[in-house]
């Protein structure tokens, strides 16, 4: 479970995150929805321990990230904003590297990796060096290395950005699968239709603040619009005004 309570974060003059609070429960998919530059990535980066908030708290399974970064990081699997890979390592070696850094049991590492490779349908590329991989193939490597240690919480920063239909579908299937394992999934997106399709709980952010949250029905009701996309636009523009 991930709990965020009145989080604030500024960079120099810019207030990137203002009073953001929400909870991502186990067995639920929570969507962080907002236009580009709304503060989604900053919020996630605080949650996975790369940035430190100015005030407020962020807890992962009741572990405070600010005071016990490593403890909290052990409990999360992250697909971050940057999908950088080591061009001279194979897909499998990437998964091993991150599994070991998470202190995953060395004896089970190989079978765990094989399972992930099968799950993500990447048998044919598993032992190739990642140099020259397509965007979709790279994304699969990133996903596999973030899930190798069986994290009880999964954070995905714009997971379907720039992917083709086939890979997007795989990512969706993975998210559904994680949900059934009682994992708390938090993902960010600027695509309304994707969020509405996958999420049990939606948090809409605009200019660093939350403008609405709830189920799709609750969001539609709050905006007084039948169409979710219209609701989104109305809420975000309302936030701006």
């Amino acid at each position: 479970m991930i709990e965020v309570k009145s989080l604030y974060k500024s960079f120099a003059e810019i207030k990137a995150v203002k009073d953001v609070s929400f909870t991502a429960n186990n067995g639920q998919v929570t969507g962080l929805l907002g236009p580009n530059g709304a503060g989604k990535s900053t919020t996630l980066r605080i949650l996975y321990g790369l940035l430190t908030q100015d005030s407020g708290s962020a807890l992962v399974d009741d572990i405070d990230i600010k005071s016990d970064r490593l403890g909290a990081q052990q409990k999360i699997g992250v697909l971050p904003d940057s999908h950088g890979l080591y061009i001279r390592l194979t897909a499998r070696e990437h998964i091993y590297y991150f599994g070991r850094l998470h202190k995953f049991d060395e004896d089970k590492l190989e079978s765990q990796t094989n399972e992930l490779i099968k799950l993500l349908d990447m048998q044919s590329i598993a032992d190739r060096r990642v140099e020259g991989f397509s965007q979709g193939e790279r994304m699969k490597v990133c996903l596999a290395r973030s899930l190798v240690h069986n994290p009880p919480n999964v954070l995905l920063d714009e997971p379907t950005n720039g992917l083709d239909v086939m890979t997007t579908r795989t990512v969706r299937e993975i998210i559904e699968e994680l949900k059934t394992k009682n994992i708390a999934v938090l993902f960010s997106s600027h695509l309304m239709h994707e969020v509405s399709r996958l999420c049990d709980h939606i948090v809409i952010v605009s200019e660093g603040s939350i403008v609405a949250s709830g189920t799709t029905d609750e969001i539609r009701a709050a905006a007084g619009e039948d169409n979710l996309e219209d609701a989104f636009v109305k809420l975000v523009e309302g936030g701006v005004n």
Binding site: G49, V78, S82, L85, F98, H102
Partner: peptide
Amino acid sequence: GERERKTLEPLFINPVE
């Protein structure tokens, strides 16, 4: 090189000092 290829962020998410 890590910085240029954007591998630092994924690396730093691991629970390692």
